[in-house]
Design a protein around this nucleic acid. Structure first.
Lengths: 82, 82
DNA sequence: ACGTATTATGCGGAAAAGCGCATATTCCGG
DNA sequence: CCGGAATATGCGCTTTTCCGCATAATACGT
């Protein structure tokens, strides 16, 4: 299932999903990327952060990003809801 | 062709590709998202920036992000090269 | 309900990214 | 080549993010 994100908040929610799926806490993940638990919280919950932090987290969770033209897929169902 | 990115630099290169494809200059794009040409340059060339800026640019270029587990695709050929 | 684990939030200070403005450098068509 | 367009870089300043550290609030199993 592709995780389409169009806002920082959606991205944060998606990252959280993947983090939980791999059984890590924010503290665990923060340690792996040498960042604070608070920083992980901030990027997940608020959607604030830098690209540096983002890619550190993606790497730690063994994820990658795909950039593509927007699809017609219902934009509401994408990640904010859960 | 999927635009897989695993580093800020690859992402920047990808954004540049899409910007040029849509016939915009950094100045054009900067104006659309109410940010400086220098800020666009920074995210494209250096890979530095915030999620805020990133999603503003994605939106202006009508792009979306997909987060997914890393594939086995040759990781070297993805965007730094060009 | 309790206790613990997890996540969110707050502080002061350092670092980075943003700004306006300007200029240097590079790219590219003619 | 030359000249203009486009991109990169610099300065001083403001805003945001990150830091360490700590605590408050929430979630979750027993």
């Amino acid at each position: 299932m592709d995780q389409i994100t169009r806002t920082p908040t959606q991205l944060g929610a998606t990252l959280r999903r993947y983090r939980k799926k791999s059984g890590l806490t924010q503290l665990d993940l923060g340690n792996r990327v040498s960042k604070r638990q608070a920083t992980v919280s901030n990027i997940e919950a608020v959607g604030n952060g830098t690209l540096d932090t983002l890619f550190a987290v993606l790497s730690a969770l063994d994820l990658e990003l795909v950039v593509r033209p927007r699809t017609k897929t219902n934009p509401a169902v994408l990640g904010d809801i859960f």
